[in-house]
């Protein structure tokens, strides 16, 4: 709880102070002000409840299974997937990028069948590329593979 509020609060303040000078000012100023107020309010509220909680908790309430464990491996894989997607998209083309994205996301979710995932990834990427570029006339970045299709 504590970290939450602080993060949100700091986030609000950083957003707020920097830019309120610019442009037709009034509305941005209002919004920045709001962000600061609301952000710090949440931070204060979070700190209070963070501090108040240990005292207030009844023994019976402790048993409530709020699982705060974080699956870091999953998050790691997923971040890698998103980052790689950005890097590959225009360099290697859509099919390669989204195959990689799909496969890594599947890993992030703890899939134990990498071969199946890879097959589905390739099929889906090619299919989506075909459908969207040929069928709907959108542009998706093309690389080596796309030129062969």
């Amino acid at each position: 709880m504590l970290g939450i509020g602080l993060a949100a609060g700091a986030f609000g303040i950083r957003f707020g102070v920097g830019y309120d000078r610019i442009g037709p000012r009034f509305f941005p100023f209002l919004v920045s002000l709001g962000l600061v107020v609301v952000g710090s309010w949440l931070a204060v509220a979070a700190m209070r409840s963070g501090r108040a909680r240990p005292a207030a908790v009844e023994p019976s309430e402790v048993a409530i299974p709020t699982d705060w464990r974080t699956n870091w491996t999953g998050l790691g894989y997923l971040s890698l997937a998103l980052l790689l997607n950005l890097l590959l998209l225009e360099r290697a083309g859509f099919v390669i990028a989204s195959t990689a994205l799909f496969w890594l996301v599947a890993r992030a979710f703890g899939s134990r069948r990498p071969a199946r995932d890879a097959v589905v990834a390739v099929l889906l990427s090619v299919l989506v590329y075909q459908a969207f570029t040929r069928g709907l006339g959108l542009t998706l970045p093309s690389g080596v593979i796309e030129r062969l299709l």
Binding site: N85, A106, A108, F109, S111, A121
Partner: peptide, 9 residues
Amino acid sequence: PLLYGGILV
């Protein structure tokens, strides 16, 4: 895994 992979694609 496949569902979310698809969502992100």
